[in-house]
Design a protein around this nucleic acid. Structure first.
Lengths: 224, 224, 224, 224
DNA sequence: GATGAATGAGAATTCATTCAT
DNA sequence: GATGAATGAATTCTCATTCAT
């Protein structure tokens, strides 16, 4: 009896118990996603999720503290997945002649094309919990990994601002296109435009400075 | 007794009935806004709105069919206001040396700095009701009015796509900055970056082609 | 000031004021009836009645003390109308060979075929207000008028019980047929059966005794 | 420890779960009945029922979809009970000299004497849900069981019509007597009259034809 | 750890009725 | 007498969460 039951074996990544828990969580996620897609957010309740997942409401609460926790968890999983997907797409240098920016934009558009309703709902929950900074951090981390391979020093503006604007431009515009049910979504033109936007943000300093011209008068007193 | 009470004065624009209704609606809007700001969306209920507005729940339902109708109405009012504000800002040529793009961006940032929580909630309700296209139409209308005074023909891309991307870039990025509670908000740098983005979108074809030429610093990114 | 205002002049059947009030009441009745028929009792509210009648809710309350008063009033009018209709039908001796009982049954069936839903609702309201006895009195009065021309003395049972059973049998069975959406409604057979039932109730004692004599085929039945 | 607690005993008809649910339903029924009797239908609300039943409103909704479902359920239970009661009464041949018709009539009157208000309300709800045909089917089934033991073939009219009229006559007249608070209720005379009516409906064909006499002129076009 | 009946605060909405104009 | 905005008690029903089994 050297090895205790329930004790994780060293080379085993996850114990059966943990695996089972993970499966249950996935089942819950999928149930929630289906309800959002098929019946809308208003039909999303802990009871409906449990019923759809084929588990009892008690079990659901054994895995998540409350309803919001489910959505936030889903959002985090999605964010992780998105980050990995973009990194993978960009890292794929197999196709020459296509800029890294375009690869990233393309990957993001594709990501947003799948289960847009679910994405919107879980991200809204994530944001509503004041986790915007968490998301920002993740986006920045991924962006940093990509740009780290290039020399960013030549850029005309602070890396951070440029990064922020460029990344948000792409993700936000895609989201806006969805919310407005824009016919542009899925067109080549849309991809081109976004790609250009990103690339333009990283035009060398000299050119950038020239392009943006005057910028003489600042914008003072903001107020709510 | 030359002038009777209750007698409508000639120059009154609106009948007392309409005015009263309008005032009540405004009172309801303000109450809803305050609740969102002070207690969050979850505390927003028809009962709480009526209580805060100092009217009975019955009166509230006499003015709006349901809770959602209130939010959608607020969103529409806000959109109208936004459009007017941007047009006014751009039309203001008093300050030379500041591009129209910058004026628009500045106006939008200022608009978003006011009651951001309220804006987020009402816009979400507006979008949730499938009114994305309605909003898109309004944005396009305003953008068209602005660009109509410039020669857009020189632009390298379809007017529509360019317009869409440019306008959404600005509004969406500002919104994203809010949701993430970004420290960039309110900085000069942020305004500069957005302004550049818009202006670059409308750089004449030739220059545009040149600008996007290098494409050396591909800067993709990520988001869920 | 011999003649007071508001005092009805003797030879004037109805003052214009009263006529107008009567018209308004009829308009209200018709509005209520239409709502019951078209949208069901649940849609019947003082507000919906006023709206449908094209008058203000305040005016409605100027004519009726409350919602129930409207229905009770409608029921009374209907009962009066029913009584008159039956009496007229029975009095019509133009068609020889048709028994008075049959004429009454026929008239009642026809009455119940008109606006059955409205009838059900207003009669239920009438009964719910404990006005059953009022209705009973009216039915008895009509029945008395009809049978008064015949020699009821020969009947084997108390006039009252016989009357009660016979009249209720007809009206109640017709109503039951409606509530159960019975296919018998409107058939000749149904009329025959009801007519027989009434006539049998008034068969002279001797014959009646004989008829009920055998009692071989007892046919009981059931209902909740 | 041969018998474990929580272990279902072999002869238990129903699982504890089902039993508990059944008890709760009965508690709800009784609470509703009491409110109807003591405070009238207008006091009947889901809240008042739950309170009176000593359960939470949530539990009530866990057992019934809505208020109407409770009443319809009560009506069905009552209909089942009534059918069984009548069959039992008729089957009781212990008392000779009393016709089956009389036994059935007597049973029905007795049934209607208990909780008349409750009966009226639940039956009204049942009918209002368009379940008249359901009720008709049950009545017919019970009537068929009773008459099945006798030769109905000799009857002068279609079995269906005769059955319908006879059964509805009894049940409807009893109900009418209640609604009108008739003093006849509970008298021997009333029972006699109803019994006669039923028996007369099943007088042999020959006699029946004779009794109903002329019936020469049909009654044509009915219309609402 | 799973179960699911029970909970009950609270949300949305209705509607009979009043009353100042 | 007409009007109809305002009232607010009352009603139906939901749903996140708990806890005994």
């Amino acid at each position: 009896m050297t090895v205790r039951r329930h004790k994780r074996v060293v080379f085993e990544r996850k114990s059966p118990k943990q695996d089972r828990a993970r499966v249950t969580r996935e089942v819950i996620f999928e149930a929630a996603a289906r309800i959002i897609e098929e019946q809308g957010v208003r039909a999303l309740s802990t009871n409906s999720i449990a019923a759809r997942a084929g588990i009892s409401i008690g079990t659901l609460y054994g895995h998540f503290a409350n309803k919001e926790a489910i959505l936030v968890s889903m959002a985090r999983q999605q964010l992780e997945f998105d980050g990995a997907a973009v990194l993978k797409a960009v890292g794929n240098e197999a196709i020459p002649g296509i800029s890294r920016a375009r690869l990233a934009v393309r990957a993001l558009i594709r990501l947003h094309l799948t289960r847009p309703d679910v994405r919107r709902v879980v991200m809204a929950a994530h944001a509503a919990h004041g986790l915007g900074p968490e998301r920002a951090a993740l986006v920045s981390r991924v962006a940093a990994k990509i740009t780290a391979t290039r020399n960013l020093a030549e850029c005309s503006r602070t890396q951070e601002t440029a990064l922020f604007v460029a990344t948000r431009a792409v993700t936000s515009i895609i989201r806006a296109a969805f919310e407005e049910a824009s016919p542009l979504l899925g067109t080549q033109e849309f991809e081109d435009e976004l790609t250009d936007m990103v690339e333009r943000s990283f035009v060398p300093a000299a050119l950038g400075a020239q392009a943006s011209g005057p910028k003489l008068l600042a914008m003072p007193q903001y107020r709510s």
